[in-house]
């Protein structure tokens, strides 16, 4: 129990970082209605681009911006495969993801893992987040404001505010209309292909940014880091939806629910590990959890009938 409590701040920090990826998944899965599997590859791309640039002496923000752009490029590829080549979205994502494995390897100089030298104090100092700050900020080795929960939390709030603003603009509305009803969108003169590509780019940009943050947190980027990311993202989206759909109706709060979903997911994982589960079973567990939660609405519709609201004036 004590070890679980000790691990809690770390789990929350990691959850927050993955939450940014989950927000990216939310954009494709919930807004555009596409299950985009690119993220399994683009998550690692973000980390790979970050670790190489940062190790090469680049500014941490510049390296993160580069990671974001690299992720957007991955989204662009999937989007073009889908809209310009007529490949179904799921398959387009799988193709990009597969190709990205080689790209990520190439970016990382054909090494399966590249580390940041966090033992060097001035290197560590430059990072935005690190697992060393989790205890360090509490112990007083680092200022308290450097605690990852605070830093990534603020980062997430900033991103949510930005996205909330964007989806309220004409372009953002066009993107939402594309996902809601393509034929309506086209009848209003919206280029739905363009909107899909743009949505995939924004989504994968966020995913790669999350990858760059996790790379800093762990102090290394590993080639398999993104494997199963889509499932974690979906888990966060679904947990957030199940727990908060009755409470949160505002778009910004819905995004917040996704971030909280990711945190809860990591806390549950931590709890399961504390009980003594072999970590190798985690992926199976994640898959099962997501499968069950995705099945629930279907079962609900099939075996339980919602009460029909009666009364009220019948308008034309």
């Amino acid at each position: 129990m004590l070890s679980f409590l000790n691990a809690l701040p770390g789990a929350m920090s990691q959850g927050l970082i993955w939450g940014i990826m989950a927000i990216g998944v939310y954009i494709t899965y919930k807004i555009l209605g596409i299950a985009d599997l690119t993220v399994d590859g683009s998550f690692c791309t973000g980390g790979a681009v970050f670790v190489m640039l940062f190790s090469g002496g680049a500014n941490v923000w510049a390296a993160m911006l580069a990671a974001l752009l690299a992720g957007m490029l991955a989204g662009l590829v999937t989007g073009l495969l889908n809209t310009q080549c007529g490949i179904p979205a799921i398959l387009a994502g799988i193709l990009t993801q597969l190709g990205l494995y080689s790209v990520n390897m190439a970016v990382m100089d054909f090494k399966a893992s590249v580390a940041i030298n966090v033992t060097q104090a001035d290197t560590l100092e430059k990072l935005l987040v690190s697992l060393r700050f989790v205890q360090g900020a509490i112990r007083g080795d680092f200022p308290l404001w450097r605690h990852p929960i605070l830093v990534v939390g603020l980062f997430t709030v900033g991103l949510i505010a930005l996205l909330y603003g964007f989806f309220g603009t004409e372009l953002g509305c066009a993107l939402r209309a594309t996902g809601s009803n393509g034929s309506m969108a086209r009848a209003q003169g919206i280029d739905t292909d363009f909107c899909k590509v743009l949505g995939l780019m924004i989504s994968n940009g966020l995913v790669a940014l999350s990858g760059a943050l996790l790379c800093q947190y762990n102090g290394a980027n590993e080639i398999n880091v993104g494997r199963g990311a889509i499932v974690i993202g979906l888990a966060a989206v679904i947990i957030g939806q199940v727990l908060f759909s009755k409470l949160f109706h505002n778009f910004a709060l819905k995004l917040l629910a996704v971030a909280i979903g990711a945190i809860l997911y990591y806390i549950v994982i931590q709890a399961v590990l504390a009980v003594g589960l072999n970590p190798n079973y985690l992926k199976l567990l994640s898959a099962l959890v997501v499968a069950v939660f995705l099945s629930l609405p279907y079962w609900k519709g099939k075996y339980f009938h919602a009460k029909v609201k009666t009364g009220g004036a019948s308008h034309a």
Binding site: E170, R176, G189
Partner: peptide
């Protein structure tokens, strides 16, 4: 939002409020 989308039918959609 539906009406606002329709009011901009055929126009360039940028970063002004929807």
């Amino acid at each position: 939002e539906n009406l606002a989308l329709a009011a901009r039918r055929g126009q360039r959609r940028g970063l002004r409020w929807g």
